[in-house]
């Protein structure tokens, strides 16, 4: 059975806006469809990237998945129960990490926060010690356990938050922008940890992110949401095809030359002896390379894979 099952999930907000047209103080009620008829399911052990531009409905979805927000339409079950009805019960089976704010107690040392969580989640003492040891080692938190949370750097705090979300062995971990504001090294370490977590414990991961490298490093599957509706659900590779994305052949000629003309590719840019040719991502590069080499004196060749950011931008602009 699927761990997360959303059918036609919708969430409408009623907002009151000042009427712009008329000079009156009367406010107009307006319905905003933050999430509109979204259907997807996630199997245990999957790592899913949930992406979309700002205001697309990502956070609204996470709030519904955790039971904080009641859906206005459709059906949603997580681990077999309806989140908003069984929020407290479900809380023991899920972990949540909000990248922009900490779930830890600001003025307390990490260790105190963790000990309190052990009691709150009724984690068996042996299991708690085992988990704490494991995460403290993996996330290199050993020296920080007695530091109050407010004195931790963003990266350290994030590691503390992730530990806090995992101590009770949740079946699914929601991560809302987990790498936001982190430096490159911290990001890398965090991704490595999440991969290990998924591989060793089978924890299902659902993460929203702006950093597409997170997706490339972690997720086999991407769900793209835009303007509240599902724009894509499938593999990362498939997304490239869907987006009509192009690969780029960078050609260094021996001498400067006018724009290269070969079938199946077009020149996008010329700079001295170097030229950039783009061709469809799902087509083979071989015929293009052969055609170029046959007609021109080539010093060097290289192929650039399509940039996922471009792909998604393309997808948004079409939907």
């Amino acid at each position: 059975m699927a761990l997360i099952d959303a059918t036609d999930l919708s969430r409408t907000f009623v907002v009151r806006r000042k009427d712009a047209g008329r000079r009156s103080l009367r406010r107009r009620r307006e319905e905003v469809h933050a999430v509109h008829g979204v259907t997807f399911s996630v199997e245990p052990g999957e790592m899913v990237g949930y992406i979309g531009p700002n205001g697309a409905g990502k956070s609204t979805t996470i709030k519904m998945l955790t039971g904080i927000l009641v859906p206005t339409g459709g059906r949603l079950t997580v681990a077999g129960v309806e989140p908003s009805r069984h929020r407290t019960e479900l809380a023991r089976r899920i972990g949540v990490v909000f990248g922009q704010r900490t779930t830890l107690w600001w003025d307390l040392p990490l260790r105190d926060s963790f000990e309190l969580l052990q009691k709150i989640y009724a984690i068996e003492p042996a299991r708690y010690r085992e988990n704490l040891d494991a995460f403290v080692t993996l996330l290199e938190l050993g020296d920080l356990l007695d530091t109050p949370v407010r004195q931790l750097s963003l990266g350290q705090r994030m590691r503390g938050d992730i530990t806090a979300a995992l101590l009770h062995d949740p079946e699914v971990l929601y991560l809302d922008e987990p790498t936001i504001g982190l430096d490159v090294v911290s990001k890398g370490r965090l991704r490595e940890f999440l991969r290990t977590l998924n591989a060793e414990r089978g924890t299902t991961l659902l993460l929203t992110t702006h950093d597409l490298q997170d997706i490339e490093a972690l997720c086999d599957r991407v769900i793209v949401i835009d303007h509240g509706t599902l724009a894509y659900d499938g593999t990362l590779a498939g997304l490239h095809g869907r987006g009509g994305s192009m690969r780029t052949l960078v050609v260094d000629l021996v001498d400067e030359a006018p724009a290269i003309s070969v079938p199946g590719a077009s020149v996008r840019r010329v700079e001295g002896p170097r030229q950039w040719l783009s061709f469809p991502a799902d087509a083979s590069a071989a015929p293009v390379v052969a055609a170029v080499a046959a007609s021109y004196a080539v010093a060097d060749l290289s192929i650039q894979e399509p940039d996922i950011e471009d792909v998604i931008r393309e997808l948004y602009s079409r939907s």
């Binding site: 955790t66 039971g67 904080i68 809380a91 909000f98 704010r101 709150i120």
Partner: peptide
């Protein structure tokens, strides 16, 4: 305002 209410709502305590 700070969103800590959301955090509390994801914990198994009233």
């Amino acid at each position: 305002r700070t969103g800590s209410l959301d955090t509390m709502l994801t914990r198994p305590v009233p």
